[in-house]
Design a protein around this nucleic acid. Structure first.
Length: 416
RNA sequence: GCGGACGUAGCUCAGCUGGUAGAGCGCCGGUUUGUGGUACCGGUGGUCGCGGGUUCAAGUCCCGUCGUUCGCCCCA
């Protein structure tokens, strides 16, 4: 094979793949609308600092996964690895911090230079929601409820469970982090190699370790709950009450710490066991400090993102391919009369195609292969009489329809 | 970035202990351009991922490389 291959970790969306993908986006967009979110589209590349500042220099995303390059002016640009930082940048640069809250929905490609795996690609696609300018747990609950609603509408809520945790406010998180570092530092000799680097870079991540030895240590590690300030505890309690009110089931999982630096208070993940080790399907949390890092004022915010590829793979019901009405000329009918009918049907909003060549038998065969819903025969006789045969390709039944009916009530004719 | 498995026609695969490739499906055409999804007939289609090596001879053994896949790290 000497033809040029697609870049590693990228893939084409064609046919059923594209239909699954589009169905996820359309469904999420619809539900976001119901919840009062507006869709934003931001550039797919940004000043590198948009991400390097916000995600944390030591996060893997920044330190080894970004697609960064300098453009012809020598400026460092980066293909966006995630959506939240860019949305916050857009909030600030469009001066929308003056009109809060902003409820934002987005969908589009993201880029991360990782080893491809099931449900993980170098160019992948996310849908996401950000609720900017609301500090109340009600906002968290609403964001989570909306995410759940999307999963439900996609028919995958049954395979998925919500895992919830709190990181507390800055004071709680710092105190806890210090306690963890102290605890794990005292047991360095028992830590796995991976966790030793985590201890330097992101100690919270040790809690998530799959190493058996680490797990033993983690069992006795200081718990976040012990370090929550009264305010943070009140927030946490309130959030769980609100989720109950929304009727959303969850399990508390203290190891949901999220990888990116900007999170505080609420963190959550909807996870499934149907995607191997890539089980996180929709995840997010609260990030009260991020907008300020982007040079804006203090704006509390909560949001989530979901991988479209992962959601697509879980879809039970594959969206059906569209079906056409196919015009089959018989003999050599007058072309302008045929086109008149073709365009007349399209004018009424019907997906209509015409068989270009081949014997009648061939054209019928093709109509069948392209999954036509109906075939409309156009022979010289029909055109002369103004009476046409319509064949339902599903049942094989035929009926006669007048030209007038075709040109004015085609929807009714081809409904059955 | 690390480890395992795999890589033969568009697709799914066969090819025994090395002797220069097969099937099914698909695709194209035909069974008189007034009728498809069935049937029958015919045809197209692979420098066996790529590059080296061993050998008289490699799809079949060895090395490398690229790609896919599963897991780790990380993450959606």
């Amino acid at each position: 094979m000497s033809s040029i291959q697609p870049v590693r970790g990228t893939h084409d969306l064609i046919g059923e793949d594209q239909r699954r993908h589009a169905h996820v986006v359309h469904t999420a967009r619809r539900i976001a609308g119901v919840y009062g979110f507006d869709e934003w589209a931001t550039p797919i590349f940004e000043d590198t600092r948009v991400f390097s500042r916000s995600l944390g220099d030591t996060s893997d995303v920044v330190s080894k996964e970004m697609y960064s390059f300098s453009d012809r002016d020598g400026e460092s640009l980066t293909l966006r690895p995630e959506g939240t930082a860019a949305i916050c940048r857009a909030l600030v640069t469009n001066a929308l911090t003056q009109s809060l809250p902003q409820k934002v929905f987005y969908a589009g490609p993201m880029f991360r230079h990782e080893r491809p795996q099931k449900g993980r690609y170098r160019q992948f696609h996310q849908i996401g929601a950000e609720l900017l300018g609301a500090a109340e747990p009600l906002a968290d609950a609403e964001a989570i409820a909306m995410g759940y609603e999307v999963l439900k509408a996609l028919g995958i809520a049954d395979y998925v469970t919500l895992e919830l945790n709190t990181l507390g406010d800055a004071a709680s998180r710092d105190a806890w982090r210090d306690a963890l570092v102290a605890y794990f530092s005292a047991h360095k000799d028992k830590l796995s190699e991976d966790s030793l680097t985590r201890l330097e870079k992101n100690p919270l991540r040790i809690l998530d370790s799959k190493d058996a030895g680490d797990k033993v240590l983690v069992a006795d590690a200081p718990m976040m709950a012990e370090f929550l300030t009264p305010e943070a505890r009140a927030f946490w309690d309130d959030l769980r009450n609100k989720l109950d009110v929304f009727g959303i089931a969850y399990t508390v999982n203290p190891s949901i710490v999220r990888g990116l630096d900007y999170y505080n208070h609420t963190t959550f993940e909807f996870v499934t066991n149907r995607l191997g080790s890539q089980g996180t399907v929709l995840a997010g949390g609260r990030y009260d400090g991020l907008v300020k890092q982007m040079g804006g004022p203090e704006v509390p915010a909560i949001g989530w993102a979901a991988g479209i590829e992962r959601l697509s793979m879980l879809l039970g019901q594959v969206p059906a391919a569209p079906r056409s009405v196919v015009l089959v000329p018989v003999g050599t009918p007058d072309e302008s009369a045929v086109v008149q009918i073709l365009q007349g049907l399209r004018g009424q909003g019907l997906r209509t195609e015409i068989g270009y060549k081949g014997s009648l038998r061939k054209r019928m065969e093709r109509a069948g292969k392209q999954n036509a819903s109906h075939v409309l025969f156009l022979g010289e006789d029909e055109l002369a009489k103004g009476l046409f045969r319509v064949k339902n390709m599903e049942t094989g039944a035929e009926q006669e329809v007048s030209r007038d009916t075709l040109l004015s009530k085609a929807q009714d004719v081809f409904a059955a």
